[in-house]
């Protein structure tokens, strides 16, 4: 650690004392780091995230196939995008995936999280098993489920009461159902952890008071537990929205956007336009749509989660 960090010492010495503002809110400005300490990471981040973000906006007005230089074509990509039925459908599909993801995962992970928050030993053991899907990458999970759902060698052969003729990925409804289910299998443990942690923070005295007043388990859940979990529900749902918007591996590996374009959500459509049709201009335009949607959501994250308040209340301690 110390050796890797050593090079940053020198700029700090030069910049530290001079750049500091006079102490206005208590605390001395002596020995404070200057903002040069933030520069290496900021430049690095700007190079790979912020500059590309501006570049994607510029590229959305160009035609580029990956060879030679991008050519400016004005609004052509955007006009094409508005008339592209697959794009419109992909936005609806993304919305459908997000809504179905929230509807299936939220109630389940709240119930599991609250249940797992109990101190009973059997609950601790089961929670450890629930956790296992989190250890697998999205790619591994998609490959696993593709194998499990193989019409010839997988579960459909032994569970025909559930899978019918076995070709579950062959219909749009089946493919969507599989993606929603796999999303649930993959992400419920994560959201369960959020709720488990939050449920443990609820003061036990609330439950004691409620049970003295004669409230049963169900009543306690709806009158105490759920209201106390409000902030976690907001965080969890926002993470589901952002996650749902950028789902990619699962679609690529499980359905490849199909059957037809039946599961081509926006992020996957972008990949296809850019890296399969080598139409980087249109791909950039779709990417910009993704940025706008996810920025709007992220503003909500910052506002609702209190990150911004945390910064301002502790700034300059």
């Amino acid at each position: 650690m110390t050796t890797t960090l050593a090079p940053r010492r020198r700029p700090a010495r030069q910049g530290g004392p001079t750049k500091g503002r006079p102490a206005s809110r208590g605390g001395s400005s002596v020995g404070r780091p200057g903002f040069v300490w933030a520069l290496p990471a900021s430049i690095f981040f700007a190079l790979f995230a912020l500059v590309p973000l501006l570049a994607v906006a510029v590229l959305s007005f160009t035609s580029w196939s990956g060879l030679g230089d991008p050519k400016f074509v004005g609004l052509k990509n955007w006009e094409a995008l508005f008339e592209d039925p697959v794009m419109l459908q992909s936005l609806w599909l993304s919305l459908l995936f997000i809504v179905l993801g929230i509807v299936t995962q939220t109630p389940l992970s709240i119930l599991l999280g609250v249940w797992a928050a109990g101190n009973q030993r059997n609950r601790a053991i089961l929670s450890a098993i629930y956790f296992v899907p989190l250890l697998l990458s999205s790619a591994a999970i998609s490959v696993l489920w593709r194998a499990l759902l193989d019409p010839n060698f997988g579960l459909p052969g032994q569970m025909s009461w559930l899978f019918g003729d076995g070709n579950v990925l062959g219909t749009q409804t089946g493919a969507i159902a599989v993606l929603i289910f796999v999303g649930m299998w993959q992400f419920t443990p994560f959201h369960t952890l959020i709720y488990q942690g939050a449920a443990r923070q609820i003061p036990p005295v609330l439950y004691q008071a409620a049970s003295i007043d004669g409230a049963g388990t169900v009543r306690q859940f709806f009158s105490i537990t759920l209201p106390q979990l409000k902030n976690s529900i907001i965080t969890s749902v926002i993470l589901m929205v952002v996650g749902g918007l950028t789902t990619f591996e699962t679609v690529l590996i499980l359905t490849n956007g199909g059957p037809g374009t039946g599961t081509t959500i926006t992020a996957f459509h972008m990949y296809q336009e850019a890296f399969r049709r080598f139409d980087f201009g249109t791909g950039s335009a779709i990417a910009l749509v993704l940025v706008v949607i996810s920025t709007v959501i992220s503003f909500a994250v910052v506002r609702l989660s209190g990150y911004d308040k945390m910064r301002s209340s502790l700034e300059g301690l």
Binding site: A23, A38, F45, A267, A274, V301, R311
Partner: peptide, 26 residues
């Protein structure tokens, strides 16, 4: 740090949370 630049940088990184990798992959 008490410099305004440092707190501006933090706000920038908060916004950076919103940038999905797909968005800048091209």
């Amino acid at each position: 740090s008490q410099s305004r630049a440092a707190s501006a940088i933090f706000r920038l990184f908060l916004l950076g949370l919103a940038i999905p990798a797909q968005a800048v992959i091209v």
